[in-house]
Design a protein around this nucleic acid. Structure first.
Ligand code: SF4
Ligand code: SF4
Lengths: 145, 145
DNA sequence: ATAAATTCCCACTAAATTGATGGGAATTGT
DNA sequence: ACAATTCCCATCAATTTAGTGGGAATTTAT
């Protein structure tokens, strides 16, 4: 039940874009440097993010990436669904046919319910809401002695 | 973000015990037959369940397993924590020291929050509550034509 | 024009986790 | 004695995840 690095890094990539994407496209190189993640690895996450419309790209020198829509409209659920696929806790939740017990199985209902609650939690966070908290934290003066 | 078979099978094992454990110990062989899971595989799940007190065992002929406490007091969270270890979505949630960014990382707070909500959902299901629903379903006459 | 920066797309290898099985000793009821 | 059963060791196979490589295409800057 751990989130893979794919999902974790992907969220950090998107969050970095939300924070630093104000003035034109941001290059992967910059993101990788700030987040201390291999640029090569991050590049694997780009195609799905792009094809799902969560980011747009600008090719060529001085190119990079920008958010595909307003940061207030991008939730963690959106990002993770794109990078990790349908996040059912169990396969039978999405595809009953994988198990011949599925019609009578109550435990299946339970997994579905828990999965729904998890997705709801993920959906309640937007890039904008996280970024806002981040700024608040940075504003607070840390009364130096 | 999928639950491993270890956790899924473990829950079914425990659920089977809750349903059929009324009259003395239930053998693994029986559970494996009813649940259509390899007895050998299930036997791997026993030691942690036993050492955590979720089940008790009776050795020898006519032996088997019984729930370690009342089915109303065993939640899915209990079972999964024992079988899957601490279910943090990210390692840094439980061990901040694994990442040098953890002190300032807001995303970490997010993962912790989502993880908590998931565990809360799991905690809201007890073996007894699931078993009750199962019985209700079986009682409902399926108006045969 | 040329060079530099950058996305883009292919594929491949290595590492870690998970799933599944095997064999035999110890215990207990019949 | 015998059969049923837990118990504990260990090993192998399959799958998934993490991480790397190389080079073509595109655009800006000089
Ligand atoms: S036994 Fe139930 S929960 Fe498990 S795979 Fe089958 S339908 Fe799903
Ligand atoms: S970057 Fe943040 S979320 Fe990721 S491991 Fe470090 S502290 Fe945790």
């Amino acid at each position: 039940m751990k989130l893979s690095t794919r999902g974790r890094y992907g969220v950090r990539l998107m969050f970095d874009l939300a924070l630093n994407g104000g003035n034109g496209p941001v290059s992967l190189k910059d993101i990788a440097a700030r987040q201390e993640i291999s640029e090569k690895y991050l590049s694997n996450l780009i195609p799905p993010l792009r094809s799902s419309g969560l980011i747009n790209s600008v090719r060529g020198s001085q190119g990079g990436y920008v958010l595909g829509k307003d940061a207030r409209e991008i939730t963690l659920k959106d990002i993770l669904l794109v990078l990790e696929g349908p996040m059912h806790l169990v396969e039978c939740a999405g595809q009953p046919e994988v198990c011949n017990r599925s019609t009578d199985c109550l435990i299946r209902d339970v997994w579905s319910e828990v999965g729904t609650r998890m997705l709801d939690a993920l959906e309640s966070f937007t890039l904008a809401s996280i970024a806002e908290k981040q700024k608040q934290r940075e504003e607070v003066p840390s009364y130096s002695i």
